[in-house]
Amino acid sequence: MKVSIYRYNPETDREPTMKEYEVDTQGKDLMVLDILALVKEQDESMSYRRSCREGVCGSDGMNMNGKNGLACITPLSQVAPGVLEGKKPLILRPLPGLPVIRDLVVDMGMFYNQYEKVQPFLQNSTPAPAIERLQTPEDRAKLDGLYECILCACCSTSCPSFWWNPDKFLGPAALLQSYRFLADSRDTATEERLSKLDDPFSLFRCHGIMNCVSVCPKGLNPTRAIGHIRSMLLERGI
């Protein structure tokens, strides 16, 4: 099958190019990450990130035939119709909207900055008990669908609002984490957290486009989390 990969090495290339490779899959429905490994055997200069190869570390977010996802848990059959059969090429590009360091490797700095801005750590002003802080199963269930984020950036880099204001709009991933702490019964910094979000950009640049939901490889729903934060801000305003 044909694989077309975005190539750019700042040391030698004036501009990026798409390079074609021929890979023998023996008809198997391999994961996109397996294809990248086969390409790297042919051409070791092609760079990409990878680690766990099972969809939990978030290293290999990339754009596959136009859609963001994790290479390691995306089989060829799910990339686009015709790719597995070799009727269409597999087209791999770096995540959109972030500066490219080299090939499929993007500079995640802006993405991590926004994550850090939401103070993604538990804050509790009361002294810790000698055992764990008790939490009911119902309260704990409020964290499901939030804490599982793997920081792969598939969502934020598919979000037009983030493309436009990556420095001022926090983006779906950071906002999901913001809500993960707002929703935690053990966290007492709700007021400070909300006041930091109460400006025209940080949260309110979300226009509910929902690209984040459609690409999240973990099936999470940042738009819903953003909606919850909006409600909390509104209630606080009343």
Binding site: L122, L134, Q135, D139, Y147, F181
Partner: peptide, 15 residues
Amino acid sequence: DHMGLPFSRTEEGRI
């Protein structure tokens, strides 16, 4: 737990 690790819980609210 104090750092925020989201452990699953028992009916008593413990880990």
